[in-house]
Design a protein around this nucleic acid. Structure first.
Lengths: 189, 189
DNA sequence: ATGATAATGAACAATATGTTCGGTAAATGT
DNA sequence: ACATTTACCGAACATATTGTTCATTATCAT
């Protein structure tokens, strides 16, 4: 990719991220992003058609990082043996999220949080579905999946709202405590 | 309250609700609400300073209805005896929500859902706090509360996304199944 | 060096915002 | 029934945002 594109793209992301720290997504205008990023009007629209697409791109960036281990371990199928249980995996995800703390706090602010959570849950749902067969709960499978993804996403939100003061391990522990999957280890087969 | 006020207020609510059926909250303009409600520009601003306040007012309306039994039973303290357990209470809330199905679907659409959920969880959190002492889970109390409110709100969302095809009772049952409060009855004392 | 690609900035029409104000119609209460 | 209060209207207003276009300039890749 052209260095110039990368540069402006980064500038836009940074500007957006910075604005999210002080304003709600819905109240941020394209104009402000342009001003903050210090780029030309037409340049912005050359990169993103809408504000929503910018947010989506940002989330995708983040998740591709956060879930990168997931994808790798899925591909190499080497997560069956050692300490790759569900709880450890959740800790892992939280660790990655902590790396992006600054962005997270902003993105999760109110309205944009809705979109973020939506995308986040999609990733989570896919992950949890691998454990579904182990779960013995008398409810529809899609409800269980919805619940697990949703409540873990909520856990992350709680964690961030509390300035990530707990360690990822503690947080993952709490989630397991409160979840109906307490018995699941994910270390089967 | 002046009949005229009530009339325009209703018109605004109806217009807003109707718009939410086809558009996302963030993409709805005040202008559209004005046109749909067929009122004067200044009239809208005489009622609501911002779009957010309109949404908030709508949510408050809804919840005061949905949680009305809650408040009554709390006041009269007569929910200790018979079938007033937690599960029954949750069913009750779902029943009330079903009455407002049309509004719900709209409000929950994406961005506005975030605000709706926020307000909803505040009510739920207050309700769940009454059961907190009974819950034996090794995690911070505020986390548990956050989790219970959040996951029940998510349950409602799931329910609505599925066109409320399950009965409120089934839905409440699923929630209890999947929740860490399965043992709680709420019929103590 | 040069052709290709990206950023610029200004200008554009179209729309949205939030406010003001005199006039009109309807409600209230006595 | 009447006078008074109150709400609505609608037009006009300055201001801001949006999304697009285009000619110009700067930067990149090779």
């Amino acid at each position: 990719m052209d260095r110039r594109q990368q540069k402006t793209r980064d500038a836009i992301f940074r500007a957006f991220s910075s604005l999210l720290e002080t304003k709600r997504y819905g109240n941020i205008t394209v104009q402000e992003i342009i001003d903050e990023a210090n780029i030309g009007r037409s340049t912005f629209y050359a990169h993103f058609d809408t504000k929503d697409e910018l947010l989506k791109a940002m989330c995708t960036n983040l998740f591709s990082h956060v879930f990168s281990d997931e994808l790798i371990s899925e591909k190499t199928h080497d997560f069956s043996g050692t300490n790759n249980g569900l709880e450890a995996r959740l800790s892992h995800i939280l660790h990655h999220l902590k790396d992006s703390e600054k962005d997270m706090v902003g993105i999760l602010s109110c309205e944009s949080g809705e979109l973020f959570m939506k995308y986040f849950k999609e990733y989570l749902s896919e992950m949890f579905s691998r454990y579904l067969s182990e779960i013995k709960v008398n409810a529809p499978a899609d409800f269980i999946l919805y619940h697990l993804s949703g409540s873990f996403a909520e856990t992350v939100k709680w964690w961030i709202d509390h300035k990530m003061k707990c360690t990822p391990e503690e947080t993952a522990r709490y989630y397991m405590e409160v979840s109906c999957i307490a018995g699941i280890t994910g270390t089967d087969e």
